[in-house]
Amino acid sequence: MPEQQQILFMQIRILRMASERFCLTLKATAELFKKFDVLRYIRECFGIFHVEGDEAVFEDVKAYLKAKGADL
């Protein structure tokens, strides 16, 4: 599978996981991710993220959001 497709799949999985864990709609989660440029962050960190499980990636994204000032 091409890397761009792998990145897209990871972005979608983490978006859905965040929606569930933060008790937000997918739309609200997508808006949060857009505001803090999370999809770019996942794309740029994919080299490390692709060897980690989704749980570890989610925890990293959550820490990134908190560091950027997101109210979770």
Rank of each mutant, 00 (worst) to 15 (best):
A28I: 05
V38A: 00
F36D: 01
Q5K: 14
A56P: 02
Q5C: 09
F22M: 07
Q5W: 11
E55F: 14
E31R: 14
A56V: 15
H50W: 10
K66A: 13
E44R: 07
L39K: 10
K35C: 09
Q6A: 15
L15N: 04
K66T: 15
D60I: 04
Q4P: 06
F33C: 00
K68R: 10
Q11K: 05
K66H: 15
L32G: 02
A30D: 07
I42K: 00
G53F: 07
E3M: 08
E20K: 15
A30P: 04
V61N: 00
E55L: 15
D54G: 07
H50G: 05
T29L: 03
K34C: 11
D54Y: 07
V61G: 01
V57A: 02
R40I: 15
K68Q: 12
L8V: 11
R21L: 12
E44P: 01
S19K: 05
E59C: 09
L39V: 08
T29F: 01
K34F: 13
T29E: 00
G53P: 02
A18D: 02
L72D: 07
V51P: 06
I42R: 04
T29Q: 05
Y64R: 02
I14S: 03
F33A: 04
M1D: 10
Q4V: 09
D71Y: 10
A63N: 10
L72K: 08
D60V: 05
M10S: 01
